[in-house]
Design a protein around this nucleic acid. Structure first.
Lengths: 263, 263
DNA sequence: TCAACAGGTTCCAAATAATGAAACTAGTTT
DNA sequence: AAACTAGTTTCATTATTTGGAACCTGTTGA
């Protein structure tokens, strides 16, 4: 998981390095020891040590004294709350998602693009109650999800290429697109058609139809998908929801654009 | 560095300053312009400018070109997801909260203490479906909420005093405790009794009973509350749930302690 | 009992990055 | 067209970060 090309442009200064370490801890997905981080980083011992100290005493990391491990800290949760509320997409889209979920009776995902990856910012299920952070904040691959492809398709040339380059192209299923060229061709098709599909490209048995949410200037704000499983619905069944999906995407775009924070 | 005493130990280095700016943006609760931030900060123009640039291009802030405003960025949402999942409390407590909510038919809050403030990490409502980030990640005052007082009461002397000093003591209602001394006395009572109450100290009409979640060594992990309104329930009604509340708090403590990440 | 070791912490001179006053640009108002 | 506002860039100065090495501290093994 390391050694390959740096995700985002080289760390800017000390802050960049600190955040890189923060990501490293977060990506582990479980509490980590100092030595474990040291083994994976290019920083010398003392440097890593001090970065961890700084982050810890800033509350960005939490140090468990008993187990001697680092984990992402509570301050992040507080900050994310603020980020979510202020985002001009998720809170605004809420009521539309609820309505769409009830109308089509399937699971709805709302996502945004973050460095070529899909970040789910909300989820609505007609039946079960939703799960909190356990769903929102989750990241997924861009190249093999409906929402990912929908968003990439409508990026402008430079950003699109950038996003294409960032993908991992792991063959999750036999249907996964595994080359930049195949993906680029698919994106062209999607842009022409206006919606994208996940044809069991990420998980066997899971299919979806997705549409981008575009600002009035054509900028990609996010994407919306209706997900189901092959056992519940056929592809044609999903196709039936196309109009509702596109309408909702437009409604959300409109609402997000005209929305202003109370002064 | 500037007039008033630094919130948390002086900003450590550049990273501290950057995170301070990040907090500043987040605390605004709405997108902010450069000049607005400049007016409130002690940093010179150029410095603030570069901090914002760094944070933005790290994805910690999002810059809206059209409106020329900064808001907390998506990377935070991703990181917080990780923080929430890894926290040894919230994900573990989930099933217990659900059970308790159904048993008592009232709203349950799960909180942790973050620098003397209450950070809600989960919420369960027997009736309505829960809200996502709009609830989890929210912060509240420590001195006038049931969960806040429950947690502070069981801190060790040093941390307790520290927490007492951090409170704002704003009189939200006639019942709010507005002096450190009054709070300290209340905390002693709570520690002796094992549960705390919010007697409309934060919001008129809202009452709750809360209990701390303590590790086997007595360290405060978090707190749990059953909240209701005076129109729905009397105080005696809440008192009836005391046993269930304490049992659940203990169950969660046990589960959190014995829980280990899969190796 | 002692030596070797591993994980973690501290030191300090050298290298590097942050600083901030001032100059500059672009857009608005008088 | 001059004055003003908001944002951006420059560059010599200054302060912070760096990282090799020494130093703890608890553990292992002989």
């Amino acid at each position: 998981m390391n050694s390959q090309l740096r995700q985002q442009g080289g760390a800017d200064g000390t802050v960049g390095k600190a955040l890189e370490v923060l990501d490293q801890v977060a990506d582990k997905g479980r509490p980590v020891r100092f030595s474990e981080l040291l083994a994976e980083t290019s920083h010398p011992k003392a440097t890593l040590y001090r970065l961890l100290q700084t982050l810890t005493n800033q509350g960005m990391l939490a140090y468990d004294e008993d187990r001697q491990t680092y984990a992402p800290g509570l301050r992040l949760v507080r900050l994310a709350h603020s980020a979510w509320r202020q985002s001009s997409l998720a809170p605004v889209a809420r009521p539309y998602l609820t309505a769409l979920a009830q109308e089509v009776g399937e699971t709805i995902h709302l996502a945004q693009l973050d460095r070529g990856q899909v970040l789910y910012v909300d989820k609505m299920n007609a039946a079960e109650p939703i799960e909190m952070f356990s769903q929102a904040g989750k990241v997924g691959p861009g190249y093999c999800t409906g929402v990912g492809k929908a968003m990439m398709a409508f990026l402008d040339a430079g950003d699109r290429q950038d996003a294409i380059n960032r993908q991992a192209y792991f063959a999750h299923t036999p249907n996964t697109l595994t080359t930049p060229d195949a993906l680029a061709a698919e994106l062209d098709r999607i842009k022409a058609e206006g919606v994208s599909y996940d044809r069991e490209e990420h998980e066997p048995g899971i299919i979806c139809i997705a549409a981008p949410i575009l600002s009035s200037t054509g900028r990609v704000i996010g994407a919306l998908s209706i997900t189901t499983s092959t056992s519940r619905q056929s592809f044609d069944g999903l196709e039936q929801h196309r109009a509702a999906l596109l309408r909702t995407a437009q409604d959300i775009a409109g609402a997000a654009e005209s929305w202003q924070f109370p002064t």
